[in-house]
Simulated scan of single mutants.
Amino acid sequence: MVTLLPHAPAMALRRWLGLGLSVLLCFSLGCALEKKVVKSKVGEKVGLPCCHEIPSSESLHNYRVYWQKNTTDVVTAYAEGKKMYEHIQFPQRYENRTEMDTRNLTLWISPVEILDNGSYQCVVQHFRHSQNSYVLCDERVTLIVTADFSDPNVTAEVFANSCESAEMVVRCSSHGGFPKPKISGALNNMSVEWNARWVSKSSLSLYNVTGEVQLNVTKDTEFSCTIEYDGFTKSTSLLLKKTNDCVVPTVSPSYNVITASSIIIIVSLLAVTLAARYFPRHVCSHCCKPQDSVEEDVKECTKPMSSKVSSETSSV
């Protein structure tokens, strides 16, 4: 045991040197310590880079290349310069949608679909007829697929209105996007909390989103709705108008006012009635009178004259 101690540092040094050479070889072959990420939208054409590029002095005949998704589905495979069909079952959905560059081994997918979202792996083997094959590189790349949402549609419905404020429900909706979005709103640059719901057939299907919020609007205010998904945004604004057509409620008169008004009306009616009866009986003496009264007055007026004549006659 004592005689082996001097050799222990040498063994550890060789182990660390071997590890360092492995790391250096990994970097020289294009091995990445961080996972590569590629983003694309539905309907576009996207290229997934491989971890190796065939030198111009060589050809694809000296390599085997495998592109697979989630380590289960083989997207494409090449051996000795030709695509491999034997003993490999390719998913039908990749048919006529994928091709590989024979020089830099990039996998091209067109048109991109939602189901293409996920992790891919490029495996490159180098071999010669006189030697066994060995793996040059084995690297993963993540494809993030997005689909644009429609411009948000914002509507407002007033369900209660007064002179001071308007109670309304504001709705915002957008559809046909991916991945699951975040919906946000702002009223006078102040954020509002949505009552939101999402509709999608699965985690790898297009989403529809609808948000609803109840607001108390006291003046004309600008409201905005924003849909956020994987770094992209769609926004729409709507001017919420407070209507000025309000009806002021009429206040019924008090009991005292009603009583006083009734007394005034009654007194006025009595005064008019008495006046109508009083004035015809106290007109001036030369005013017209009924016929009977005139005859009586004539008789009364003629009596003194008759007496006067009779007296004069008797004296004669």
Rank of each mutant, 00 (worst) to 15 (best):
M1G: 13
P6S: 06
P6L: 06
H7K: 12
L13N: 13
R14A: 15
R15F: 09
G20C: 12
V23F: 03
L25F: 03
C31A: 08
A32W: 05
A32Y: 01
L33Q: 07
G43I: 06
K45N: 04
V46M: 01
C50E: 01
I54Y: 00
P55H: 05
S56G: 09
E58A: 03
Y66R: 09
Q68L: 11
V75C: 03
E80K: 15
G81N: 05
I88K: 00
I88N: 00
W108T: 10
I109P: 03
V112H: 02
I114D: 05
D116T: 06
Y120W: 06
Y120F: 08
R128E: 13
H129G: 12
H129C: 05
S130P: 01
S130Q: 11
S130A: 12
V135D: 02
V141E: 03
I144V: 12
V145E: 03
T146W: 02
D148H: 11
T155E: 06
N161F: 02
N161Y: 03
C163N: 09
C163E: 11
S165Y: 11
S165F: 08
E167W: 05
S173P: 00
G177Y: 04
F178S: 01
F178W: 01
K180V: 07
L187E: 08
L187G: 04
N189R: 12
E193Q: 11
W194Q: 01
W194G: 05
R197S: 14
W198E: 09
S203E: 13
T210C: 02
E222R: 10
S224E: 09
S224T: 15
I227S: 01
E228P: 02
F232W: 08
K234E: 11
L238T: 08
L240H: 00
K242H: 12
N244P: 04
N244G: 10
D245L: 06
V248Q: 12
P249D: 07
S252D: 13
S254R: 08
Y255I: 02
V257D: 15
I258W: 15
I258Y: 14
A260V: 06
I266A: 13
I266E: 06
V267N: 11
V267M: 11
V272T: 13
H282Y: 12
H282L: 02
C288T: 04
D292K: 14
D292S: 10
V294R: 13
E296M: 13
C301I: 14
K303S: 08
P304D: 07
S306F: 09
K308L: 15
V309E: 05
